[in-house]
Nucleic acid binder design. Structure first.
Length: 505
RNA sequence: GGUCCUGUGGCCGAGUGGCUAGGCAGAGCUCUGCAAAAGCUUCCACAGCGGUUCGAAUCCGCUCGGGACCUCCA
């Protein structure tokens, strides 16, 4: 069997994946900023890296998956001003950042659960690691790669680049950005900028009086810059150098580039060996984002309550939709595409369930009836699952192979072909492999539970039948419907006006 | 302006120098009391123009179009 290959943004090519410690994988993924509700765009990385997590585990690795929660920074809820802090409002009327953080963290977890993603091994928060971040900043200052200005601390990118280019860790190593060009456009310095160079970035920021999130530090009260948290937490839980660092492509610069610089100064090593980036979800060809005003929140997606949406789309439909595309391609949202995904998923899932319901010991296999060609086809398709996953996690191709197996399953189910067309070995491999890949690796699950509107529809049909039966004085039928429903815990009642109502026990 | 990615059939999307992607939609047939489902068959493609090659959607060049990053961003 082939080895897992992944596209490393650092080298811009697919590489065979080998962990630092065989059998163990450390993976860090940039988590959400919990100052607002997650949207469709957020679904992409967390589902993508959920698949990585699941697949690496399937390959026999013990994976430590760390995904942070960014809960420090500028925190305001829409319509509420940060000046709350200095106003004379009562405590309970003030904006309490931790309340916001909690609210959106909960919503994030809820959505991730809906998507059937596995929780990370560790989910550290930025606010819970202020000390680690301060220690790291002090080290960078001590080494001469950062400077203090008015209570803020900035990373000296120029100096870093000069020294670390010699160590093959230039600034821009990940994003391919050349520093000189950036300095070119440094001229238009806005007002009294504290930075020496435009490309310098904040490690610590002095908090103005109205800023509601603040911590004491050697440089005064303030809050950490947004790159340092990932450097501090990844090193703490995964070591100075670990295997995989993941995140959205938009984080490649400046976020990940800055992480590398910070970590390189402190730990003298490239923090992660494989940098994996998922591409963006677009809507009408545009990246989904606040600045474009085209955000569809996950809760709106699940409920269908957004003007763009023609209907609600279930979490599994969205998961499937995302998996149908390779993670490094952009994925364009549209109602039509989601509807197609919904139908496709249903087809796959129904065949999958039918397959799993078949029990080998209740089927009679006759080896003499085996269709050699069909067996070979099925076994080849099944073997491709691993090959395609190994090829930089090509879930799109795995699903395509699965869909080629669907007609075989349906044909057996509908008795268009005999089950004996497959050998018992092939059949058992098929069942087992489909289970592993559909549920354990793709992370798909049934969504049948409790769809109230459909149940209501079903009951209406039964009620109408019962009305007809009663009209024909066919009481045997009408009673059978009522009694059998009652056994299921649904009580039908005949109202005075001839209508019927029902209640659930 | 700089860096980079991308352009596949009605829609979404894989993809490799020669071999069926797949899903959804459409057409026909089979099955079926009817319908649905399912099965079988089928239509529709590689932005344009050149070049390399025995052979290119796949490599190179140009043209046109779309997008991302350079600011918070998944």
């Amino acid at each position: 069997m082939s080895k897992l290959k992944v596209y490393n943004s650092l080298t811009r090519q697919k590489e065979v994946f080998e962990s630092i410690t065989p059998g163990h994988v450390g993976m860090y993924v940039c988590g959400p900023t919990v100052s607002g509700e997650s949207h469709l765009g957020h679904a992409r990385p967390y589902i993508t890296f959920d698949i990585f997590y699941r697949y690496l585990t399937y390959l026999g690795n013990k994976v430590r998956y760390v995904r942070n929660i960014t809960d420090a920074g500028h925190f305001e809820e829409e319509g509420r001003e940060a000046e709350d802090k200095i106003s004379k409002k009562a405590v309970l009327e003030k904006l309490e950042p931790m309340e916001l953080v909690q609210k959106y963290t909960n919503l994030f977890h809820w959505a991730m659960n809906e998507f059937n993603t596995i929780s990370p091994s560790i989910e550290p928060t930025a606010t819970g690691h202020i000390i680690e971040q301060i220690v790291m900043i002090e080290k960078i200052i001590a080494d001469g790669y950062a400077y203090v200005a008015n209570g803020s601390v900035y990373f000296d990118v120029d100096k870093y680049n000069e020294d670390f280019s010699k160590k093959e860790l230039p600034y821009g190593i990940l994003s391919g950005r050349v520093l000189d060009e950036q300095i070119e456009s440094t001229r238009e310095l806005d007002n009294q900028d504290e930075k020496r160079n435009k490309s310098d970035f904040a490690l610590w920021k002095n908090a103005p009086p109205e800023h509601i999130m603040r911590w004491k530090s050697p440089w005064g009260e303030g809050f950490p810059g947004w790159h340092i948290e990932c450097s501090a937490m990844s090193a703490k839980y995964l070591g100075d150098q670990f295997d995989i660092h993941g995140g959205g492509m938009d984080l490649q610069f400046p976020h990940h580039e800055c992480e590398i610089a910070q970590s390189a100064v402190c730990n003298h090593v490239m923090p992660a060996r494989y940098w994996l980036h998922n591409n963006m979800i677009t809507i009408n060809g545009r990246k989904m984002g606040k600045s474009y005003n085209n955000v569809i929140k996950l809760s709106e997606l699940f409920s269908g309550s957004h003007p763009i949406l023609v209907q609600a789309f279930s979490p599994m439909t969205i998961r499937f939709f995302i998996l149908q595309t390779h993670y490094r391609s952009t994925l364009d949202f549209s109602n039509e595409a989601l509807q197609a995904a919904e139908k496709g998923l249903r087809r796959l899932w129904e065949a999958y369930e039918a397959l799993q319901k078949m029990q080998v010991d209740q089927l009679s296999f006759d080896a003499s009836k085996a269709d050699a060609e069909l067996n070979e086809k099925v076994n080849t398709l099944l073997a491709e699952f691993d090959e395609y996953m190994n090829d930089d996690l090509n879930t799109a191709k795995v699903l395509a192979s699965m869909f080629e197996i669907v007609p075989v399953i349906n044909s057996i189910k509908d008795q268009h072909i005999e089950v004996s067309a497959l050998t018992i070995e092939t059949f058992e491999t098929l069942q087992q492999k489909m289970k592993t890949f559909v549920e354990d690796i793709m992370g798909l699950k049934s969504e049948l539970q409790g769809d109230q509107s459909k149940l209501d529809g079903v009951l209406k049909v039964l009620i109408d039948l019962r009305k007809q039966a009663r009209a024909k004085k066919d009481f045997a039928t009408s009673d059978a419907i009522r009694n059998q429903l009652l056994q299921l815990g649904i009580a039908l009642k005949d109202e005075k006006n001839g209508e019927m109502s029902y209640t659930f026990s």
